[in-house]
Structure formats: C-alpha cells, structure tokens
C-alpha cells in the first residue's frame, strides 16, 4: 500500500468529517440544549445550498453567496423555531420526529416549487478550482482543502464561543437547567431561537460548501442526516467536542473503509469474496462502529455534562 495514498485518503476522510461536523454541531446543540430531535436539520443544509446557488447565479460572486446563504438560512431557521418548533420542546420525541419529518416534506416541496426538481448546476469558485501541493507527491483539490480549513476554523470558533463567552456559558447552563437560567433573568426562549438560528447557519455553511461537489437537489439533506445522527451518537449527544470527534472518526472510518477494506480483505479471504463482501461491509462500517460505541460507551465518546 502506497503511503501517499493513505495520506490522501486521510485528507479525504478529514474533509468528509468536517462536513459532517458542520451539520452535527447544530444538531447536537439543539438536541442537547433544547432536547429537540430535529429531523429537518438536513432541510436547512439544503436551503443553504439552494440560497447560495441562487445567489451565485444572480451575482456571480461566491462570497456574496456565502453571506446571503448564511444570513438567509439563519433567518429561516429562527422563523422555523418560532413558528413550528417552540411548541414541541415539551412534547415527547415521537411527536418531534413526526412534526419535523413533516417539515422535511414541506421544505423539499417548497424548494421543488421554487427551483424545480432537477438538480441545479453550481461550480467550484474559479479561484479554488485548482489543486494545491499538500506534500511532495500529494496534490489535493484546493476547494476541498478550503473545506477542511473552514471546518476546522468553525470548530475552533465554536469551541471558543462555547467555552469562553457568556453566550457559551448560557448555552451550557441552559443545557443542564433551562428553568434556572430563566429564573435568573435570561430570556431562554430568545436564547433558544438564537442558538437554533446559528445551528441553521452552520448547516447552511455545510450545504453551501457541499453544493459545488455534491448535488443541489430537493432532498439532498436526508442522505447526510443519517450519517450526522451516527456522528452525534458516537460523539455524545449535546457535546460540541463529541460532535467534532465523532465527525472526524466517522469521516475517517467511512473513507478509509471504502478505500482500503476491499484490498485488505482480498489478502485474507481472496479477491472474489472480497469483491462481494468489501463494498457491503464498507458501507456498514460506521454503523458497526456506532453499535460498538453504544455497547462500550452508551454516553458516546465525549458526553456533555448534564444536571
């Protein structure tokens, strides 16, 4: 096995991981703090991708598209929290799942009505369409490298916000005891709306970065959402650190599994058996990992401290 290839695949895994992280961060905050299972988080990812694509088509500027998509999705997210989700906090998880599944259908149809069912074309911004020399012998697509950098920066920023700022303290305090936070003079509803809005913006960031490499399509958020749930279960629900760790682990395991599991299996069980078992097993790896984590550490790798 070529070690350069291994390094390159690790970069691929990292890149996939940070995409997952952007989704997982918002989802885990909302789940951890508001105790809300929001299946429609993938819809916000989709909305972000669509807004960015629409803006880039209109203005031609990727930067303008980023700003528009982030602010637009922030606003849509906050609106969604105020109109639809607020009434769900006190309901049980099944109600939340049903209601937010309804939102998925709503968003998918809304997007199809506005932009049509066909996939939209969106290109990598020309400044980032080249490759960069990561190491001697490894050229890596610049756009994907930027995703890694942006993802890690967002993780760092989130870490600072959550651990070092008043907002972060309130978010953590709210996760453990929302009543007490309110009784000490903090408008917890507004806090929730804001947190939800930022979670939405993070999903949009993931979506808008995904647009040029994946497909901008109605329903694009559902596929990744399942993997994001795996991430937060592995990482520990409600924990940003857990989301990052889980995302990177899932990204790596999935990517390296897809790349190397079949060749490795073929040395053990022979090439034809590996051809059959390899792809199936590779696509199951993250679920196997999740099952293992649930068995040995039901709280996840980095559980959030709760009251």
């Amino acid at each position: 096995m070529n070690w350069l290839l291994v390094v390159e695949q690790c970069l691929n895994g990292l890149q996939f991981g940070v995409m997952l992280f952007l989704m997982a961060a918002g989802l885990t905050l909302v789940f951890g703090i508001m105790n809300l299972v929001n299946l429609a988080h993938g819809s916000l990812y989709m909305v972000g991708a669509y807004l960015a694509t629409a803006a880039v088509t209109r203005t031609g500027s990727f930067l303008a598209a980023v700003v528009f998509a982030l602010l637009g999705t922030l606003a849509i997210g906050m609106l969604m929290e105020v109109l639809a989700l607020r009434t769900l906090y006190e309901r049980d998880h099944l109600d939340q799942v049903l209601a937010t599944f309804g939102l998925i259908l709503f968003f998918n149809e809304a997007v199809a009505i506005v932009w049509g069912r066909a996939a939209l074309f969106t290109a990598v911004p020309s400044a980032l369409s080249g490759h960069i020399q990561v190491l001697p012998g490894i050229r890596y697509p610049a756009y994907r490298a930027v995703i890694i950098v942006v993802g890690l920066l967002v993780a760092l920023l989130l870490y600072v916000v959550v651990t070092r700022t008043r907002l972060g303290m309130l978010i953590r305090a709210g996760a453990s005891n929302r009543t007490m936070v309110g009784a000490l003079g903090v408008n917890i509803r507004l806090l929730y709306t804001v947190v939800f809005g930022f979670g939405a913006a993070l999903a949009a960031l993931g979506g808008l970065m995904a647009g040029p490499i994946y497909t901008v399509l109605p329903g694009m958020g559902e596929e990744i959402l399942i993997q994001v749930f795996v991430v937060i279960v592995i990482g520990g629900i409600g924990s940003i650190r857990g989301a990052l760790a889980g995302a990177v682990v899932v990204g790596m395991v999935d990517t390296l599994g897809r790349a190397f599991l079949r060749p490795m299996l073929s040395t053990v069980i022979g090439p034809s058996a590996a051809d059959n078992a390899g792809p199936a097993l590779a696509s199951m790896l993250i679920y196997i990992l999740m099952a293992a984590v649930l068995y040995f550490r039901p709280q996840g790798l980095f559980p959030a401290l709760r009251g």
Binding site: N12, Y214, A259, G278, P279, S283
Partner: peptide
C-alpha cells in the same frame, strides 16, 4: 479494478483517489 460503491453515495473522492493510484 472493479469497484462497487454504496447506492446513493454522495462523495466519491476516496474512490477517485484509489482510481488515480
């Protein structure tokens, strides 16, 4: 080589890296 990927997979970067190899 003959490679099968997951139905509905979104990211083929890992497979493309292998392919180039």
């Amino acid at each position: 080589d003959e490679v099968y990927t997951k139905l509905g997979q979104q990211d083929y970067q890992a497979e493309i890296s292998q392919l180039r190899g």
